[in-house]
Amino acid sequence: MMELNKDKRQLVMDWYEKYYDDVYRFILYMLSDKQCCEDLVHDTFVRAYVAYDRFDNRSNVKTWLFSIAKHLVIDEIRKRKRRRLLSFVKEIPSPFNIEQHIENKEAVVHLVESMQKLNPNYRLVIILKKVEECSTKEIGEILGWSESKVRKTLSRALQSLKKMKEIEEGGGQIEQTY
């Protein structure tokens, strides 16, 4: 029994090293809160360790970890709604050089703020598809949805972002004429 726990611990630590960045990025984009993100990433791997015996290899490890993280994120969103707290990312790590970072920072912050206005399912699908580059099938497994529902939700989410952008741009033009 002691040997099994050691193997389990090592396996989860290997997953931590391999998937930490992916899980961190997913949670950060969902919540836009670095401190909370660190806690939820930690909780994701703790839950994976505790639930290890229930992992039946029907999906890959990354998909399973995203599923755990998704549930933690949804719980956190519910807590925040109850408390009516909203926080936005003001600084996003960027792989660009400093000039590009300065040029793109405003656009990235605006996009993240717009995504925060979307309902949680829309955010989940956009982040999993566009940021984490999961396949439609993987997203379906993570969310427990059919591939058709994933495609429809992604389409609606992108339409919502597009409408927000059009309203903001259109609103700016109306204000300029007065």
Rank of each mutant, 00 (worst) to 15 (best):
Q116V: 01
V150D: 10
V23A: 02
K149N: 15
E175V: 08
V89S: 05
Q173I: 14
M1W: 00
Y122D: 10
D75H: 14
G171L: 09
T177R: 15
K81D: 11
P95T: 06
L86D: 06
K137P: 09
K130M: 04
D7S: 01
L65W: 05
R78G: 13
V12G: 02
M115F: 11
H110L: 08
L28G: 01
T63H: 08
V61I: 13
R84C: 00
I77G: 06
M1T: 02
Q173D: 14
I127D: 03
K81I: 04
T177K: 14
L31N: 02
E76C: 06
E99N: 10
K62Y: 08
R151A: 12
F88R: 05
I68Y: 03
A157N: 10
I167M: 13
P95F: 06
H110V: 03
I98S: 11
L118T: 06
S146R: 10
Q173W: 15
P120K: 05
R123D: 00
S87R: 13
K163E: 14
A51I: 00
K149V: 10
S148D: 12
D39Y: 01
S67A: 10
E175P: 03
K79N: 11
V50C: 03
Q173L: 15
R82K: 15
S59Y: 06
K149Y: 15
E103L: 11
V109W: 12
Y16G: 07
E141A: 15
Q35S: 07
K163Y: 12
Y49T: 03
M13W: 07
N119G: 00
V73L: 04
E133R: 08
M1P: 07
K62C: 10
C36K: 11
V61S: 06
H42W: 06
M115L: 14
Q173T: 14
V12T: 02
D21G: 02
S32Y: 02
I142W: 05
D33W: 07
V23P: 04
I74L: 13
M1H: 07
S114A: 13
M2L: 03
A51C: 01
L11E: 10
N5I: 02
I98W: 11
R82D: 14
S146P: 15
D56N: 14
N97C: 04
N121P: 00
Y29A: 00
C36N: 04
I27E: 02
L31F: 01
L124S: 14
Q159L: 04
G144I: 10
R156A: 11
M164G: 14
E141G: 13
I142V: 13
I167E: 15
L111S: 11
E168C: 06
E147H: 13
S155A: 07
S148R: 12
K152P: 07
R9N: 12
N60H: 09
E3N: 02
Y24K: 00
